[in-house]
Amino acid sequence: MTAIAGIGIDAGSTTCKAVAVDPSGAVVATALEQALPRIADQTAAMLDGLRSAHDVAPGARCVATGYGRRLVECADRRVTEITCHARGVFDDLGRAGTLVDIGGQDSKVIRIGPDGRPADFVMNDKCAAGTGRFLEYTAGRLGLDVADLGGRVAAPGSEEQITSTCTVFAESEIISLLARGAEVDAILKGLHRSLTVRLVAMVRTVGWEPPLMMSGGVARNAGVRAMIGEALDTEVIVPEHPQLTGAHGAALLALEG
């Protein structure tokens, strides 16, 4: 069994992720759980789980990232999710470019340099608009599972206009549209358009360079991918496990000391 040489923990607002890599950077193990309020306990338990199931090389290090990174007590180093996502996607896809990372409570657009490090970035961190929480909240209002949204939005059909990017006001618009008899899928399309308009503005702000990549849980949403790609007239590339990109990048940074 290959020994773990580096561990990355991404303590996000919605999910907590861990990735362990061997000395070559190859992934040995992964874990993904819903985030719990006691981040220190949860991440300690995740680490224990990895260590008990795998050999751990002497001197193996741990890098913590995500909004709860300061609470990961066993971390040797703490690095922001911007740097970790850039490093992770650079390793996954092997190229510089622009990364859109839509997290649970914020979103970032990161321009990645040829060395895999962030060259520039912008963050939306002032409100829930443009984040995964926006979709979660509005999906809940429509009685839908957030995992089903992408498929429904990607399917052909009409689209309602949601004029507000504010999560709370968008909910009011949903209620009005439902009362007028609008189709749920048409409302969903409008909600996704509202989210992507905001994200595309961020992409343009950072002065993006192709290819355009996505990470974070929302990257699995085919509707968001399609709308962003359409708005920027480009293909959107997504790693195999976009939710683990940050933890993977953290694990690779752990290898570097």
Binding site: T80, I82, T83, R117, M123, D125
Partner: peptide, 28 residues
Amino acid sequence: YPVAHVEVELGGELGHRVITRIEAFVET
């Protein structure tokens, strides 16, 4: 020269998102 821009209010300590933004800028 890279430039980062943050806006804050004067009501208390810095929120973790502002801190993250500043730390990420230093990392770049």
